[in-house]
Simulated scan of single mutants.
Amino acid sequence: MSVIGRLHRVGLALTRRIEELYAESGLSEPEFDLMATLRRSGPPYERAAGELAEHTMVTTGGLTKRVDRLVARGLLERTTGTDDARRRMVRLTPSGFGVIDRAYAAHMANERYLVDLLSPTDASRLEAILRRWQSALATD
């Protein structure tokens, strides 16, 4: 219980700090994930809706709701594919690009801060332990 309980509490504390940071940018965690996926895709910062659903691991219905909220806020836009007008694309707007760039920079600084609460040796050991544990759980 001590390992799982502590791991659970640490996970909740990390999630809370990460979500608070996203909220400062006006984003939820799923919205950040969606916009970061588009940002990582490179110019023109767009993907087909189906690809976004796969990359963000949500249903197409869940994705549609997130996209609708971000379109209403002017952070995303829907377009049609250049090679197929039936293909629906989702793209960052210039405003959305700015929001996700600032949010991503803050997120990376926050992650660095959180990891730096550990010594470099402890962080390295923990990463190796978690990698092995994750691998063992994946085989069950």
Rank of each mutant, 00 (worst) to 15 (best):
R78W: 10
L126A: 07
A49Y: 01
A53G: 03
A109R: 10
T56Q: 11
P44L: 05
A109T: 04
L117N: 13
T64Y: 10
R6V: 13
R112G: 06
A109W: 08
R40S: 10
L92F: 06
R125A: 02
S135Q: 11
E29K: 12
M35I: 01
N110T: 14
E29I: 11
Y113P: 04
A72D: 15
A138F: 12
D33A: 13
L117R: 15
L34D: 00
R131E: 08
R69P: 05
G61R: 15
A105C: 01
F97I: 04
P43N: 04
T80Y: 14
L14E: 11
K65R: 14
R132N: 08
R112T: 15
G61V: 11
P43D: 05
L27D: 07
V71W: 04
R66Y: 06
L21V: 09
H55F: 15
M1L: 08
F97Q: 05
L14H: 14
A13V: 13
R112L: 15
D122R: 06
A53L: 03
G26V: 01
Q134V: 12
E46P: 05
E77Y: 09
R73P: 02
F32M: 07
K65E: 09
D101G: 01
T93G: 01
P43K: 08
R16M: 14
T60W: 07
V99W: 04
Y113C: 09
G61Y: 14
M35F: 01
K65V: 09
T93V: 01
P30C: 10
A128C: 07
R39D: 00
M57F: 08
L21R: 15
T56G: 11
D140M: 10
V3Q: 13
L63W: 13
M89G: 00
L63K: 11
A105H: 04
T59H: 10
A109M: 02
G26H: 03
I129Y: 11
I100M: 04
A103N: 02
S2C: 04
G96R: 00
E127S: 15
P44I: 05
V115Y: 10
S2R: 09
D140K: 11
R78P: 10
V99K: 02
T37Y: 08
A123H: 10
S28L: 11
E31T: 05
R131I: 05
G26R: 02
E127V: 09
E31A: 12
R17P: 06
E19T: 15
M35A: 00
Y22H: 13
S95Y: 03
R102H: 03
G96M: 01
